[in-house]
Nucleic acid binder design. Structure first.
Ligand code: DCP
Length: 1020
DNA sequence: GATGGCAATAAG
DNA sequence: CATCGCTTATTGCCATC
């Protein structure tokens, strides 16, 4: 492949990126000790990396962004009320009832009908035999054999919205696809104002019989497609704003339908001339609707023509909701651009203005584009050994500031201090020019702080469109210059370009060659972008190129191609530590404490070099980080960094996907959070489907207001100081179903048990993404082999949990197919304290299930693929408890204390009782039980008891006697259980004493308060 | 010793 | 009014088996 071809990798109209890290620009926090530091801190310079998980209010770190032009419209998520599958088993035997998850359908034909049929023994056998092996196995495995534990506890408190395992289905909002063709004809006939555009007579296939509308429309369709194609040829392809949109225009509009048609087609959409039952129209454009149509179009996204016009003007598809013609409640004002996280439009409107969202989206798009264009036989590894690499790191100078200033036109980039930000006080500066930097202003700083440093600072608005445009031009120019063998996108304003040169050339020749390229490229970019300047760092390794870029800024270049190790090392030594890639505040801090005595504010590489060895670095900073740093000091890349060169497609392939919202999160009830999670999951699953991906694992991460942080932080709608918590869930089978995923996430949310009002951030991440097309392959690997390794194997647990008659049918079917039937597994060696056993006893069924039907221990792989909800219940107790215990007993040193506070918040005290209405009681019970289990030998720690006591008192005050009672029952049965183990005597006694002296009186008092004439005694 | 969950860190 | 504190990836630590 020659360099021109390679250069084509990134030639497209839209995006690009180029530029180096901003480690040098976003200056790290200064030391707290130094006078200068405090000034800077006061100035809000403290960057990422506060000890606290999130920024304190005085920090300035993040900034705005805008909505992803490619994101499809969000709809209000539609939850199917019930999966309809759960009813399949009639409870006519004494077995535990269960349900099939809605992800059963994958391998099943007509999964919807199946259950109903399955409930009839006869046809069930028939149907079973019609399934292929995989589908059969999957059917079994997806059986969730339990009553939902939440239910039982939900009874205890009123009105808890329950989270059921699989109650959601992805219901398309355009569900009206089944309309008969007649409707379509009707549509047109009924609308004289929008007649079919061309009379049928001219069709090449010959004259049509009068009234043969069907043929007419078919012909018409083909004709129109050709027209559209021509239109695109004439006007050139524009950004695919309406990609995946199928648009129909109803009635008279302004602009008229011809204009709309043209625009829809040019910008990547499909224009439907009629509402066909066969194609799913995604949007209907109308200026007004008759009441009849209003009803008819209820299920469509009906928008005003402005949606088209504005979207094109904005250069991206705007959220359709703002242009909705039909609003659920006509009284409610539609265009609420308020920052209300409860609004269905919140996500879209927030994204539209978040700079960080934009940066991330652009980057992801660039990476995807790279992967799709890279035909990939250029691997660095395949090159002849003699080839030398020249790495060019290219980055716009103060990108946003420059572009915004140019767009405005009134300001001088060189002379006036400029900065891009939304607001005037606690708003973050996305980018400031070098004139501003001379005053100490930095990217990420709050405007207020910056103004203190530089009162004349001029604030500029964001102009995301232009950023995108300039970025595209940059990449196009990089391609056009033809000097590079690879163009690797780093971000919207930054790229790494690679040039191969022959060993035969002298150092001098290579240097000259690169020097020429760099100079001419800088000029070219300045011209093509009409005034944006780039800096270029050129080096023989990635790290040298990056450092050279630092040196080159602003508006210059720097070449470091020397092969003399001495000069390379002295070059590297001259940089500050935080200018090394991957070295931020935290690592610098560690280095300072471990290697440097003097309280240098910004230590250099030279400082570190003098005071460290590779070994020391590794032991203090971790193996990878230490080794990497050691290499960097010699100007060499580590293996990890080189991946981008060795296998760029793998490097740029998406491995996860997430939505993080840590701004404007202010909810009152968990139900509102549920709805929000639904919207996020909807957004993500849509995106996942577009990309043809599925996920086996989802993580929920939340931010919770710190106990001591004010309810409203300094920054308007900011998150303030928060603690972060996260939880992971696995699906039995990788999925892209919104319902399944959202349910898991909502369940995780409850596990994290954050009082709704203290929630300040929500992040949902899909991990370990894989291609949906690999699903089958993957699925095979997922199940534990039971003797027929070629096929997926049965989930033993699920199999044994099946109702008897089913099981025998399935068994028969399985053995017919030579798939081994999981016989009762021989009990493996007993799990010491069997949380499993107890779990079953508590949650699975009131009376313990027949022993034989459940594996008595868990093998890991099996565990791993259990539905997360079950896994959690199995594992959670000890995991959380140990953490709690460990932390509780630690001394009150600040960091530990934080942990302490965090865990306590999470598990006990500051929980408003009201929030426990959901499944929290269950969690608390589990926790208490594990607590007992863990402390049965030594007895409860007194500090723990004090906390627990407070909690009980609260319960009592709130009149939750029933729950206290429940708790006591649990505790006493737990103690009884332990009484059979001799070692537990001492601890048990302590526990019993506590119960007698504290809980029993409390309970009695609580009953008394409520006028209940009960008196509890406690028989130990 | 491998694996996995969760937290911390970095980057633009 | 304000204000739009995202998203992806790697690494480290600890617990578990
Ligand atoms: N904390 C930050 C850092 C960066 N950006 C945005 C605005 C920048 O213009 C763009 C590129 O980031 P750089 O780190 O390259 O910074 P600049 O281009 O602004 O300045 P420099 O000349 O130092 O590269 O990313 C941001 O919004 N918030």
């Amino acid at each position: 492949m020659n360099s021109q071809e390679l250069a084509l990798l990134l030639t497209d109209s839209s995006l690009d990126a180029s530029r180096s890290r901003n480690a040098s620009q976003a200056s790290p926090p200064l030391q707290r000790g130094s006078p200068l530091a405090s000034e800077h801190e006061a100035a809000g310079l403290e960057p990422r990396g506060d000890k606290r998980v999130e920024n304190s209010d005085n920090d300035c770190r993040y900034d705005g962004r805008r909505s992803d032009g490619r994101r499809s419209d969000n709809d209000i998520c539609s939850d199917a009320s019930s999966d309809g599958i759960s009813d399949i088993i009639h409870d006519n035997d004494s077995e535990v009832r269960g349900r099939w998850g809605s992800d059963t359908g994958v391998g099943l034909r007509g999964a919807d009908e199946l259950p109903g049929d399955l409930s009839q023994g006869h046809s069930r056998q028939h149907l079973l035999s019609s399934l292929d092996d995989e589908a059969l196995i999957q059917l079994v495995n997806s059986y969730e054999p339990r009553p939902k534990p939440e239910r039982r506890l939900a009874d205890a408190d009123e009105g808890s919205p329950s989270v059921s395992p699989v109650d959601f289905e992805n219901v398309s909002d355009v569900s009206d696809n089944d309309r008969a063709p007649e409707d379509a004809r009707h549509e047109v006939i009924d609308c004289p104002q929008t007649p079919p555009q061309a009379p049928p007579q001219a069709h090449p296939d010959g004259p049509l019989a009068f009234g043969d509308y069907e043929t007419y429309f078919k012909h018409k369709h083909v004709q129109q497609q050709q027209q559209d194609q021509r239109l695109r040829q004439i006007h050139g392809v524009k950004p695919p704003i309406f990609k995946n949109c199928i648009i129909y225009v109803n009635g008279r509009t302004n602009p008229d339908r011809l204009v709309l048609h043209k625009n829809v087609v040019l910008y990547g959409g499909v224009f439907n001339h009629y509402l066909s039952g066969k194609t799913s129209v995604t949007h209907i454009i109308a200026s007004n609707l008759t009441s009849k149509k209003r009803i008819e179009f209820q299920k469509y996204k009906v928008v005003t023509p402005d949606w088209i016009v504005d979207s094109i003007a904005a250069g991206e598809r705007l959220p359709w909701q703002r242009y909705a013609l039909i609003t659920a409640n006509p009284n409610q004002p539609t265009i609420s651009t308020t920052l209300d996280c409860k609004s269905p439009q919140f996500l879209a409107s927030f994204f539209a203005k978040s700079r960080l969202h934009h940066l991330s989206t652009w980057k992801a798009d660039l990476r995807a584009k790279f992967c799709s264009k890279y035909v990939g036989d250029v691997s660095i590894e395949r090159l002849p050994k003699t080839t030398r690499l020249a790495i060019f790191h290219i980055d716009f100078d103060c990108f946003f500031a420059t572009v915004s200033a140019l767009a405005d036109g009134r300001y001088s980039l060189e002379k006036q201090p400029l900065a891009v930000a939304h607001g005037v006080a606690s708003s973050e500066i996305a980018s400031c020019n070098y004139a501003a930097r001379a005053f100490g202003v930095r990217n990420g700083m709050w405007v207020r702080s910056a103004k203190r440093l530089c009162p004349d600072l001029v604030l500029l608005p964001y102009n995301f469109n232009q950023y995108e445009v300039k970025s595209s031009i940059l990449y196009e120019t990089l391609v056009a210059c033809g000097a590079f063998n690879m163009i690797l996108p780093i971000s919207v304003d930054e790229a790494i370009c690679v040039r191969f040169s022959d060993e035969a050339l002298s150092d001098e020749a290579i240097r000259n060659d690169c020097s020429k390229i760099v100079s001419s490229l800088r000029e070219r970019i300045f011209e093509s972008t009409q005034g944006c300047s780039v800096s270029i760092g050129c080096g023989s390794s990635l790290v040298l190129a990056r450092l050279a870029l630092k040196r080159a800024k602003p508006g210059g270049f720097c070449i470091q191609l020397s092969r003399d190790s001495k000069s390379v090392e002295s070059f590297v030594s001259s940089f500050k530590l935080n200018e090394l890639p991957g070295v931020g505040y935290s690592i610098v801090d560690k280095i300072k404490t471990n290697f440097l005595r003097k309280n240098v504010s910004s230590p250099t590489v030279a400082d570190l070099k003098q005071n460290s060895t590779r070994q020391a670095l590794i032991s203090k900073l971790g193996s990878k980080t230490g080794a990497k740093l050691a290499l960097f000091m010699e100007g060499k890349d580590d293996e990890e960094s080189l991946k981008i060169l060795k296998d760029p497609v793998e490097f740029f392939t998406r491995k996860s996907m997430s939505v993080d919202i840590n701004y404007a999160i202010r909810f009152d009830t968990i139900h509102e959070i549920d709805t929000f999670i639904d919207r996020i999951c909807d957004h993500l699953t849509q995106k996942m489907k577009e990309l043809g991906l599925i996920t086996p694992q989802v993580t929920l991460k939340i931010l919770r207001r710190c106990a001591h942080a004010p309810i409203e932080p300094e920054k308007y709608l900011g998150s303030g100081e928060c603690d972060a918590f996260s939880r992971n869930s696995r699906f039995g089978v990788p999925t892209d179903e919104m319902g399944v995923i959202a349910t898991e996430v909502k369940s995780s949310l409850r596990m994290l048990s954050c009082p709704p009002k203290d929630l300040r951030g929500v992040a949902v991440q899909f991990n370990k993404l894989m291609k949906a097309s690999d699903r089958d392959k993957q699925r095979k690997g997922l199940f534990v082999g039971v003797g027929n390794p070629a096929k997926g194997s049965l989930n033993t647990l699920a199999y044994h949990a099946l109702p008897k008659d089913f099981r025998s049918d399935i068994k028969a079917e399985l053995s017919k197919r030579n798939i081994s039937v999981p016989e009762t597994p021989p009990p493996k060696k007993a799990v010491t304290i069997s949380p499993v056993k107890d779990f079953w006893a508590r949650h699975w069924k009131q009376d313990p299930p027949p022993k034989l039907e459940f594996p008595s221990s868990l093998d890991n792989e099996f565990m791993v693929h259990l539905p997360s909800q079950i896994q959690r219940e199995l594992k959670q107790d000890h995991a959380i408890l140990k953490k709690t215990k460990r932390t509780m007993r630690k001394s009150v040193l600040s960091k530990e204390y934080k942990q302490f506070e965090k865990v306590i918040n999470r598990n006990f005290l500051s929980e408003p009782i009201k929030f426990q209405a959901l499944d929290r009681p269950k969690e608390i019970l589990s926790l208490v039980q594990s607590w007992i289990d863990d402390s049965i030998n030594s007895g409860p720690h007194s500090a723990d008891l004090i906390l627990f006591d407070k909690y009980l008192t609260k319960l009592s005050d709130a009149g939750k006697t029933h729950f206290i009672l429940r708790m006591m029952n649990l505790m006493s049965s737990r103690l009884e259980y332990h009484s059979s183990y001799p070692n537990s005597a001492a601890g048990r006694q302590e526990w019993e004493e506590y119960m007698l002296r504290r809980i029993v009186p409390l309970l009695n008092q609580s009953c008394h308060n409520r006028g209940t004439a009960l008196n509890f005694t406690f028989d130990v």
